[in-house]
Amino acid sequence: MFQNKDTYTFLLDGKTIPFTEEQTIIQAAMAAGEYIPHLCFNPEFKPHGSCKICTVSANGRQTASCTQQPQAGMVVESNTPQINGERLALLQMLFVEGNHFCPSCEKSGDCQLQATAYEMNMMSSHFDHFFPDRPVDASHPEYLLDFNRCILCSLCVRASSDVDGKDVFSLAGRGIKTRLIVNAESGRLADTNFSGDDKAAHVCPVGVIIKKRVGFAVPIGQRSFDEHPISFTPHPALKDN
């Protein structure tokens, strides 16, 4: 797999992981079949580094593994009680920041936020819920936008801009008021040039961008993460290829 003659290795939780010059820690780990929990990272896109779920300890310093390049011989720790505890807290933050009602969510079982929370043994949301007011946009004939579930990973922003060349989505606002917007004065998806064929329609790790009229086509219990926990499930992007 690594044609590059300068192939080095680092240690991930004691396992030897080869890497090339272009790879970050998570990219090398994923290529070697190792799982580091993540949400805003998607192997098809340039790393973003915002969700911080993929935080690891690299030579003793905590850093996002999706943006951090490894060094030869680097000692990386990921699956430790302390780091998983921090991931759990970050996941709980994402849950209380939005409105996530898994039992009634169409994405349940296919949702990376939910699956990663299971992986980290999340039993409660711990923090007080913010219960933000985030109206749903059902204007588009084929797609629904449920902003309640947005975790601001910006994958749809990146896909629409980098792959589709459309810039349908952007992040707006600042701080806790950061929100996803679409490229229309009305703020409605129907008034953009969004299409179901766009890459952006298929990258949401949670349940914001939902195709209409196919809800529950795959019954709960038979979905991606019902079959296997997320740590044993190849990334959808890798599975497709």
């Binding site: 915002s50 970050l90 933050m93 994402l94 920041e97 701080g175 008021k177």
Partner: peptide, 21 residues
């Protein structure tokens, strides 16, 4: 800090609000 957090990363975006609360 809550007002000035840029909102990019989860811990600061949500954490500064939790702290203020």
């Amino acid at each position: 800090f809550k007002h000035e957090s840029c909102g990019f990363c989860t811990p600061c975006r949500v954490g500064t609000s939790l702290l203020a609360n």
